[in-house]
Design a protein around this nucleic acid. Structure first.
Lengths: 201, 201
DNA sequence: ACGTTGCGAAACTCAGACGTATCGAAATTA
DNA sequence: TAATTTCGATACGTCTGAGTTTCGCAACGT
């Protein structure tokens, strides 16, 4: 009460290790990145990989799902800078960010989880979607709406359909495309293909 | 050796029940359709749901994965009849088949598994892909190539990109579209959107 | 009739993982 | 120094599910 009293009175005793907390979350994400599904993740494996006692985990999270929620929540969406020179360029930037992420094992597996286990762990996904995918959706929506306003894109374009075309085409490549990473120019090719369409002339 | 000797000599004893086998595979697919991932499926749950002893399962499959491989292999791809009147119509038929399947819980969950657990169970997926998705890919590829030949589609169209655009756009809707099923006219809208592209005029 | 094989049910062993409790050591406050 | 809290490690009891075995019965050939 005398010296350190800024807001919350620090209780006596050894303080919790920030490093341990970070190591736990890191280990969790690493294991997810190694292809583990939510139901295959074990607290014991996480503790072991983090070099931490199970106690230290249970002192912070009451169960496995809580831990995973927090771990996924730390994944932020580093949206690319948009040059704004043209809708095409901005879309390419956004799509290329997707391409680069598809090469990262961790992001890739998180995506897998998001797509397949959303039904089973709804509150886990609710939080993750809000944190990680909503910002990207909004960014792309804004670009498309801008394009419609400036006349670069069809005036009668359904914005949701446009997003589905671009993101879906890219998603398809990340899923069923060649194993060894995606070509660097794929983003450009995808955007041009979608902008132009398949019909002749 | 006297009467029934057509090719394989039937061994003595009670023959294996076809019905039990069918019930086992059905129960497996049902549980998958209820949202269970591969690692959450239990032999005991399958046996219980099928009204069958575990023995009967292990007599046929040596482990869980073998059973799931066989179960998924029985899912056939009922490709739609293609009218052949136009590339647009044929594509709509193919995409609408995807839409209808997306409403079926079982197919939906199988798709989830295929997309997220392919890395973890490679031989499971190898077989499933060959059986279930290759035929559809081939059908769509044939339609697109025909369209290029007849001039309905751009001569310089990348066939793989075209497939990615159509299937990916539809995939996007099945994943992040409205919860209560997809609109009946979605296939038509998707195909027209992809054919036309996003660019103005 | 009789031997053989499959059947469902139940009991069993074994491994893995959960979540808790306990330990001595370390870090911090008073 | 004393009290308090966390640390990593380890042991513990419990539970779930894999895969095996046993049992009495049913279905099939000879």
């Amino acid at each position: 009460m005398t010296i350190q009293d800024s807001g919350t009175a620090r209780p006596a005793g050894r303080p919790r290790s920030e490093k341990a907390e970070k190591a736990i979350i890191d280990a969790t994400l690493d294991l997810i990145g190694e292809g583990m599904g939510v139901s295959e993740l074990t607290i014991e494996a996480i503790a072991s990989k983090a070099g931490v006692g199970k106690t230290t985990i249970y002192r912070r999270w009451s169960n496995k799902e809580d831990l995973i929620v927090d771990a996924l929540s730390t994944l932020k969406a580093p949206l690319p800078e948009l040059s704004g020179t043209s809708v095409r360029d901005d879309l390419i930037s956004l799509v290329d960010a997707m391409r680069q992420e598809s090469g990262d094992l961790r992001s890739r597996c998180v995506m897998n989880i998001a797509m397949s286990e959303a039904d089973r762990y709804p509150r886990l996904m609710e939080r993750f979607l809000k944190r990680a995918v909503e910002p990207r959706r909004e960014a792309m929506r804004a670009v498309i709406e801008l394009g419609i306003a400036t006349g670069e894109l069809r005036a009668d374009l359904d914005v949701e359909m446009g997003m589905a075309m671009i993101s879906g085409t890219m998603l398809w490549h990340t899923k069923w495309g060649p194993a060894g990473g995606l070509a660097p120019d794929l983003a450009e090719r995808v955007v041009d293909a979608v902008l132009r369409g398949m019909t002749a002339s």
